[in-house]
């Protein structure tokens, strides 16, 4: 066992342990923090594999974006500081069943997939290559999915603005409002 393997197992144990705590803890905020650590552990695994770009993107998207959003929504929820209620036996059974099914499905996929060694030369993951791959229109390029996702995100953004926009209050409503305050 060399140093690299030891680091892999340390990262793996860290990721799994924090993921476990994220599920079992009864403080919702702690669950979010453990989830965050688990995601950082996965980023660490990418770093271990020397996929720095993916690791950095993992941190930007999941840690800097999604977890901060989760934490914000926890902050804005009432009684977020209370302990979560424990599940009853039936709920636990179904949760365990669902988790097991998901795990089994993933494992099945991993074992059935034939990992073949390629003889193609490795592509250095620098910005130029990543950019060409991401926005390439030829074979293996991701221009179309990239654009589709962009449009989806744009739609989501516009939707957010529409929801957040307050409908313009009519003058009658405003008058009523001030009257209420005065009396």
């Amino acid at each position: 066992m060399n140093g690299s393997t030891i680091i892999f197992y340390m990262l793996a144990v860290f990721t799994l342990a924090t993921a476990f705590f994220a599920v079992v803890t009864r403080h919702i905020f702690r669950a979010a923090i453990f989830l965050l650590f688990s995601l950082i552990g996965i980023a660490g695994l990418y770093f271990w594999m020397q996929y720095e770009f993916i690791a950095a993107v993992q941190i930007v998207v999941y840690v800097g974006g999604i977890t901060v959003l989760i934490i914000f929504s926890i902050f804005l929820t009432q009684q977020a500081g209370e302990l979560l209620p424990t599940q009853n036996a039936r709920g636990r059974l179904f949760a365990a069943l669902a988790a097991f099914c998901g795990f089994a499905l993933t494992l099945l996929q991993v074992y059935q997939y034939k990992f073949t060694n390629t003889n193609e030369p490795t592509v250095e993951p620098n910005v130029v290559n990543i950019g060409n791959q991401m926005l390439g229109t030829e074979e293996g390029g991701y221009a179309l999915p990239f654009e589709v996702v962009s449009v989806l995100l744009l739609a989501a953004l516009i939707g957010c603005i529409v929801i957040a926009m307050r409908p313009k209050a009519t003058e009658k409503n405003i008058d009523l409002g001030t009257n209420n305050i005065e009396y």
Binding site: I40, E52, F53, A55, A56, V57, I59, V60, V63, G64, G65, V68, E124, P125, N126, V127
Partner: peptide, 14 residues
Amino acid sequence: MNIGVLYVTAVSSI
């Protein structure tokens, strides 16, 4: 590392 700038922006978001 070949993504130094991205690394800095990513980690500083933690």
